[in-house]
Write a protein that binds this DNA or RNA. Structure first.
Lengths: 191, 191, 191, 191
DNA sequence: CATGAATGAGTGTTCATTCAT
DNA sequence: TATGAATGAACACTCATTCAT
C-alpha cells in the first residue's frame, strides 16, 4: 500500500476533524498527529509548516464543496428561486461547518487575512463555489426570474457571506437568510 | 486622581487595540499590558483571567455600538429604507471592525461558542443593537415601507449577520449587501 | 477598641488556620489576609516579611503547647509512666497538628533549617515543651520508675521527635509509639 | 546509545539532588532541568507534570533503600538487637537524607497527604523497607530476643517514624532513638 | 493604622519545529 | 519515508512586596 499520498490525505482530514471537534486553539500539531495516527515529525515531511498544512486542509475541503455546487446552474428555471437558494445554503452550511473554525482562524490573523485579500483581489474572475452560484443567478436572470439590476457576481458573494453567520447561528437562521435574501425587505407597494 | 477605573478602561481599550492591530493570536497579556502601559500583573488585579478581560472588552465596545444605533428607530419613514439600512450597516461595520477579531476568536473556541449560544438562547428578547434594528424594521413595517410577511426580529439578525462577512470583505461589499438585502433577488414579475 | 495588638494576634491565628486547612503552599499572603479580614499590606505593618510572620505564628502556637505541658512534671509518681507518656503524646499531637505544616515547611528550606539548627545548638539548655518533658522523666527517674541509664534530655527529644510521624500517621500510631518508647523492644530475658 | 531511559533516570536523580541541595521551594523545573543538563521541555516528555516527577523521584530513591534493607531479616540472632537497630537506622538515615525534603513536602500538601494516606490504608500488608524491618523484628521475636507482646508491624512503623526527626536532628539523635526504642524508658523493677 | 493599586521576578506548562537515526 | 527525542521561545498566571494616600 502506497503510504505517501495516503498519509498526506490522512493529515488533511485529521486537521479538519480536530479543528472542527476541538476548536482552532486546540488543533495543535500533536493533536493532529495523534488523530492521523502518525508522529508529529511526519507532518513536516509533507508540509513545510503548520500554516501550509492548514491552508491545504481548507483547500481540500473547499474542493469538495465546489464540486457539490457544480450542478447548481443547471437547476435554473426549475422549482422556485427561493427553494433553490435555500437548498444551496443548507448544503453549503453543512459542508462549511467543518472548515469554518479553520477559515475564521485564518481570517483573524492579519498577515493571513492580507494574503487572502491579495489573492482574492488578484483573481478578478470568480472560481469554485462563488462561480457556480453566480452562474446560477445569471441563468435565472436570463430567464427573468431574478431582477435585472442585480450583479450576479456580487450577489453570489453576498449570499456566501451570510454563511459565516448562518453556520454559527445554526439551521433556522439559514431559512431566515434565504427568505430575506430572496424577497428583500421592501414592501411591493414601496418599489 | 482615582487610578482604579481609569486603569480598567485603559486595559479594555488596549485589548481591543492590540487585537485589531496584531490579531487575536498575538493579543497576549504581555502585549496588552505594554499597550496599556502597565505591568502584566495589573491585568489580574482587574480581571480574573484573560478570557474575562476579552469578554469585557467586547462588551465595552458593543455598548458604544448599541448606543450609536439607539436613534435608528426614529428614522423610520424618513429617507429611503435602502439608504437607512446602508448607512446603518456602514456605521456598524466601522465600529465592529475593531472588535471583530475578538468576537470571531470567541466564536471559534467550542467552549466559548457554547456559552455564547446558551446565553443567546436564554435571552428570548433581543437587546442592544439587534433590538434597535428590529424596532426600526417594525416601525417601517407599520407604515407599509417593509413587506408585511417579514419577522423584524429575524430579519434584524440576518442583517447583522452579514456584517461578519462585510467587515472581512471590506467597504464595497457592504453596499452590495444592503442592495440585496433590501431589494431581494427576485424580479418583480416573478412575485 | 485597640486594633493594633488585636490585628497582630488575628494575623498569627489566620496564618495557622490557613496553613493547617489549605497547606503550606497555599498559605499565601493573600489567603492569610483574607482569612484575617484585612488587606495584604496590613501584614507588612506588623511583620517585616512573610517568613517572620510564619516564625511568629509557630512561636505563638508553641507557647500554648508549652503552657499545657508545664504541669507534667508534677504527675511524676502518679498513674503509670506509660499512661502519662501516652496522654502527653496525644495532647501534644492534637496541639501540634495545626502548626505542623508550618514547622515542616520551615524545616524543608535549607536556610531556615540551618538557622534553626544553629539556634538549637546554641541553647544548651532545653526550654519549653522539651524542658517540661525532660523534667518529668528526671523526676520519674529519681523515684526509680525510669531506668537509671537514660539521659532525660535526650530521651525527651526522642519522644517529641516521634510526634512528627505520629501526627502524620494519625491517632492509633501514637499509642504504638508510646508502647515501644516506654517498654522498648527487648525481651526481659535478653537484658 | 538509547537516550530515552538515560534521560529519565537523569531527571529523577537531578530532582533529588536539587531538592536535597537547595530545598523543595527552590526545586523548580528550571533548576532541575539545568542540573540534568536538559531543557525544561524535556521534563514534560518524560513526566506529565512536576508532581509526577517528584513522586517518581521519591519512588526511585526508595527502591534503593528497600533493596538495602532486604538483607536485614537474615541478621536476626547475630550481634545485638541494639547494634542491629542502630546500624539499620543509620543506614536508612543517610539514604533518606536526600529524599526527605521531597517526602516532607508531599506530606505538607493536604491533597497529596490524603492521597498518600489512602494508598497506605489500602495496602494492609507492608511492603518494602517496613516489611523487611518487620520481618527482622518477628525473627528476633521468634528466638526470644524481642519481647513477646510486641506487634512487629507496628513497631517497624514506629522505628521508621523516628527517621523523620532523626534525619532532621542529625547523627547523634539517631543513637538516642535506637537506645530508647530498644531499651524503653522503664526501669526493670517497674515492669 | 490601614489600604487599594501596582509590579518585578518568577512559576509550571505548551507549542511548533529540528534532527539523528 | 517515518519517528523518538529534544528544545527555544513563549504563554497565562501568581507571589511577596512596596508606596502614595
Amino acid at each position: 500500500m502506497p503510504r505517501g499520498p495516503h498519509t498526506r490525505r490522512n493529515l488533511l482530514e485529521a486537521t479538519i476533524t480536530v479543528a472542527a471537534r476541538e476548536g482552532y486553539a486546540r488543533a495543535t500539531t500533536r493533536a493532529i498527529a495523534d488523530e492521523a495516527g502518525v508522529s508529529e515529525a511526519t507532518i513536516y515531511r509533507h508540509f513545510p509548516d503548520k500554516l501550509t498544512l492548514f491552508a491545504a486542509a481548507v483547500g481540500h475541503q473547499n474542493a469538495d464543496i465546489d464540486q457539490a455546487l457544480a450542478a447548481l446552474p443547471e437547476r435554473a428555471g426549475q422549482g422556485s428561486v427561493l427553494e433553490n437558494v435555500r437548498t444551496c445554503l443548507h448544503q453549503l452550511a453543512s459542508m462549511k461547518e467543518a472548515v469554518l473554525p479553520l477559515e475564521l482562524a485564518m481570517l483573524i490573523d492579519p498577515e493571513l487575512a492580507q494574503a487572502r485579500a491579495d489573492r482574492l483581489a488578484a483573481a478578478h474572475e470568480l472560481t469554485g463555489a462563488p462561480r457556480h452560484l453566480a452562474d446560477y443567478l445569471a441563468a435565472e436572470q436570463a430567464i427573468g426570474r431574478v431582477r435585472a439590476g442585480l450583479d450576479p457576481h456580487r450577489a453570489a458573494l453576498v449570499l456566501l457571506g451570510t454563511l459565516f453567520s448562518a453556520v454559527v447561528g445554526g439551521g433556522p437562521v439559514i431559512d431566515d437568510c434565504a427568505d430575506v435574501l430572496v424577497h428583500g425587505l421592501l414592501a411591493p407597494v414601496a418599489r
